[in-house]
């Protein structure tokens, strides 16, 4: 009797009790997932590599080591003595510095692409789904039309017509990356729209755009984040493919795809490290993103496991 009373007093007297949000629950579930945490650590390591790399590299990515030129297969092999930790490429440039540079560009492309898709796609899909009817029809048919255009063809045309530049690459990737996201966001919005809390907000007189931003988007975010983490690697693959075709970023800039392309060209000359290093970072990053994406899905949607 007395115990209950004192507990009640404690509760009433304490300032406020901190609640466990669904986000906090999801975070706890995510960190219990070993594969996802390993993926996250790999991604953090790759990110650190891209940021810190330029400061610790003994060679600049543009300088040519004239001593190894002409004898790359022998003098350009990875070694601590020459300072070429990853070896050199066919032109005698330090591969460590080049890989750091490629990592920066590839991650940038992936993250910018995913960001565009998250911001544009989610808003577009949420608006189409929430307003419904004719607005929904028109907006989604636009998406259908854009989807039916062969994107690779458009991307290549863009790069050929306007010249190869990082900006054009972002424009091209930004044009297509949000389409799938818009569809996913719209579908989720349609199911959310029937919930009573949306109706409660409408009955109270909350403005439509406030409802979208306050009630719909936060509830979409779980699905959107999962899809975005899976989108980053596919953007990286895109860019690599374009670069592999020789149309991506322009020298002296480079990316994983361009480096892999260069390495593959030299494969028969006994300089396999040129292919191996960029490929290694490419592969572990993709695996990292996939594991993190899987972990996020399990953490955010415990029902759909």
């Amino acid at each position: 009797m007395f115990a209950t009373k004192s507990i009640a007093d404690d509760l009433a007297g304490s300032p406020t009790i901190k609640g466990r949000s669904l986000w906090a629950d999801a975070r706890a579930r995510f960190f219990r997932n070993r594969a996802a945490v390993a993926g996250l650590i790999v991604l953090l390591a790759v990110g650190t590599f891209a940021i810190v790399g330029p400061f610790i590299a003994p060679w600049n990515n543009e300088d040519i080591d004239w001593t190894v030129l002409g004898n790359v297969a022998d003098g350009g092999r990875p070694s601590f003595e020459t300072g070429h930790w990853f070896g050199t490429d066919a032109l005698g440039r330090d591969l460590f510095a080049r890989t750091v540079q490629g990592t920066q560009i590839s991650l940038l492309v992936g993250i910018v692409g995913a960001l565009i898709s998250v911001v544009v796609g989610t808003l577009y899909g949420a608006i189409a789904g929430y307003f419904g009817g004719r607005i929904d029809n028109v907006m989604m048919r636009i998406v259908d039309i854009l989807m039916s255009i062969p994107y690779m063809f458009v991307l290549i045309l863009l790069l050929v017509v306007f010249g190869r530049s990082l900006l054009m690459l972002f424009v091209g990737i930004g044009l297509i990356s949000w389409l799938d996201m818009a569809r996913i966001a719209r579908g989720q919005t349609l199911t959310l729209k029937g919930k009573a809390f949306i109706e409660a907000a409408r009955a109270t007189g909350v403005r439509p755009f406030t409802i979208i931003l306050r009630h719909i988007i936060p509830n979409l975010l779980g699905v959107v984040i999962v899809y975005a983490t899976l989108l980053v690697p596919s953007m990286i693959i895109y860019e690599s493919f374009i670069s592999f075709l020789g149309l991506g970023v322009q020298e002296p800039l480079t990316s994983w795809g361009a480096l892999i392309n260069d390495g593959a060209a030299e494969m028969t000359n006994g300089t396999l490290w040129m292919l191996a290093w960029p490929l290694f970072f490419f592969v572990i990053t993709l695996f990292g993103f996939f594991f993190v994406g899987d972990g996020l899905r399990d953490a955010l949607d415990p029902k759909d496991r």
Partner: peptide
């Protein structure tokens, strides 16, 4: 004019605090 709904949990946004 305000409204109270049938399914109490469905009527509350799960991402917002009380």
């Amino acid at each position: 004019v305000q409204m109270v709904f049938q399914d109490p949990l469905d009527a509350l946004n799960p991402r917002m605090t009380v």
